[in-house]
Design a protein around this nucleic acid. Sequence first.
RNA 1: CGGUGAGUAGCGCAGCCUGGUAGCGCACCUGCCUUGGGAGCAGGGGGUCGCUGGUUCGAUUCCAGUCUCACCGACCA
Length: 576
Amino acid sequence: MLYSRYFIPTIKETPSDAEVVSHQLMLRAGMIRKLASGIYNYLPLGLRSIRKFENIVREEMDRSGAIEMLMPSVQPAELWQESGRWAFYGKELLRFKDRKDAEFCMGPTHEEVITDMVRREIKSYRQMPINFYQIQGKFRDEIRPRFGLMRGREFIMKDAYSFDVDSSAADLSYTKMFDAYMRIFERCGLNFRAVEADTGSIGGSSSHEFMVLADSGEDAIVSCDACRYAANVEKAESPLFTAGYDSNNEPLQKVSTPDMKTIADVAAFLNVAADQTVKTLVYASDSGELVMALLRGDHELNELKLKNHLGWDEIQMATEEQIFACTGSPVGFLGPIGLVMDIPVIADNVVQGMSSVVLGANEKDVHCINARRGRDFEVTRFADIRTVEAGDACPRCASGKLEMWRGIEVGHVFKLGTKYSKALNATYLDANGKEQVIFMGCYGIGIGRTVAAAIEQNHDEHGIIFPLPIAPFHCSVVAVNTKDAAVMSAAEEIYSHLGKSGVEVLFDDRDERPGVKFKDNDLIGIPLRIVVGSKGLAEGKVEMKIRATGEVLSLPLDEVTATVTQLIDAALAYKK
RNA sequence: CGGUGAGUAGCGCAGCCUGGUAGCGCACCUGCCUUGGGAGCAGGGGGUCGCUGGUUCGAUUCCAGUCUCACCGACCA
């Protein structure tokens, strides 16, 4: 490819509205341009990287036995009404009507469409297991698109759907996909973790997320420093605390705590440690159901855990009116004692081990001390509802401690069970001629997001440092002075040789000063750079610079192609 | 959805308070010069100042509405 005839509109200045490095660099390197909020054009260079990654995904999906197809992005409302998600999915689902006033949506995911196809076509146990995948554009009307391709509204996704005769066969399909995902991200040279995750609006029984580690990641994850346990913080289990139950049997006592509304205030005022207090929160469902949650004072509630524990669709903090209605108290002095309304009191498991505590008295400016569960207040039930913290003991192994990371979710695998197949009546006949419900799994990879995450993890102050497997070109050839005939003809020859050897090479033949070319080449992150200049040429040599390490080699002209192809082969080789 | 801020040349911004000929840097075009880390000189093109309405002799500037975009937040009890 001739740089002068190609299209790489680089930008010197950092665009003001790009927050994260990958977004800035993708704009500056001329990979993407914004069309509307969360909607991007993929320029030629960006597309090349995207295609590279797509092909790795494609190869590994094919290797695992999945079958590629393509589904439409516009989907009829009926399917979504049938699965029940038309009402459930909310505003993220972009809905519209056609000229006949029939309702449609832009597909944010394709469980309904694929299940509809499968229920029509898959009738026998003999046709399974089967796994369909596609690489396709999706649309989700995100609350707040940001970070460029990281959280766009329109985005490219690989999604796969497996269909099996029963739960254990489905587990096998899940494992195959899990392994394929490991290979995919390993092949890209990414530093990532597979973590246990919540299933969210997709539903299903269990799932793992694949997280590329990066400080700019939107998710917090924990992993054990001793065993293989790793989980999204949304999901991470809290280890059981064994607390010393103190035998102190002081009577419950009310104390005045004027204007002390936070745990920190109260603990400091009463001169007790925060872990001797109980934090009381009130949550409401979308239908107005209320529930009280109790946590150790220094712990944080995990709303998702509470929501899942309750089986609610939505959860939010109760309003001051709702709180007053059930406790008779203003916010800041809540507690489980003397409730006005009979609402469930869910206490975190840790509270079970607490003996004599400080908590709100449900009365303005008053807290209780020496409150004892069983004597002074009751708990409806205990559950794991707190957010884990770095340094917590591992919930799985005896010796480990949890470490915390930020991660970018690039892949997600779910065991769906029969959620969609039941709703859409996707069944088959088993060997006995008996009708059975199909077991499903679904598996997504954010294509654009993975490329962005790779940049997030591989860059320096000069620009992108593409891992070779997803680099838009393997190698560039820079002619230092295009007016120098000897330099140009040598550069052209190298370019042509490399091309014939199957190297994807970008020939920077522009009539620009060398500095400009070097800066652009660094910015767009081509892994290898051959520089042809008059000085080196006089000795029959050119220079090769490795972008990632900065290493510079002087090569005789006739060794260039061999050296380059060797480096590329090594970088692309994938050991299982 | 709530809060804040911003829309002026392709990009980054000034001007607006105090109304009267729209400016700077980069980019772009032409010429000269230059060629190993975003050079220099000279000349040049490019704007319905987001949109709609109002006030005014006159609005980029003041007022109202509207659209778009960005950032922050969606917590604490």
